[in-house]
């Protein structure tokens, strides 16, 4: 019982980590958003799990039942779901614009193009002899 009492939370933790890993490790911008939504959905699980009471029923009052699960986490998660979809929608809009501006949604391609822009600024500022500074700067970043 001691271990089984927490198994639900451990599954939630594993799901969260999968989502979180996708967000950080993947380079495709859409995949990152998918990972983010998996991460968030798993957090929802965590909230909902703590509201559950064994043997209880959904918190819609009725004379037939006496034990209800806790409604507060449900309310919080309803809010969080809305926030999640709002973030996803905005993120997707950004991805679409990034595709239009860069022609790619791979982080690496975008970084290469940005680095190129940066280099041009540097050439304009100091002339070709500025390469030492650029090396140092990359290390700082």
């Amino acid at each position: 019982m001691n271990i089984l009492g927490l198994y639900n939370y451990w599954i939630v933790v594993v799901l969260m980590l999968i989502g979180f890993y996708i967000v950080i490790a993947h380079e495709n911008l859409i995949k990152k958003l998918v990972g983010l939504s998996i991460f968030q959905t798993s957090v929802f699980f965590f909230y909902i799990s703590m509201g559950k009471i064994t043997g209880a029923t959904a918190p819609i009052l009725d004379e037939k039942y006496e034990l209800y699960s806790n409604p507060l986490p449900h309310v919080l998660i309803l809010t969080a779901i809305v926030v999640g979809i709002a973030t996803t929608a905005l993120g997707l809009a950004l991805v679409v614009r990034i595709q239009e501006a860069y022609g790619s949604i791979e982080e690496r391609d975008i970084q290469e193009q940005d680095a190129h822009d940066q280099l041009e600024c540097q050439l304009e500022a100091y002339g070709p002899s500025s390469m030492e500074i650029s090396d140092e700067q990359e290390q700082d970043e």
Partner: peptide
């Protein structure tokens, strides 16, 4: 155009923070 990627990056980091 880098404003877009900056915003996207902030969106990801910010949402992780909020989560």
């Amino acid at each position: 155009r880098r404003a877009l990627t900056a915003s996207y990056q902030y969106l990801i980091m910010g949402t992780i923070g909020a989560t």
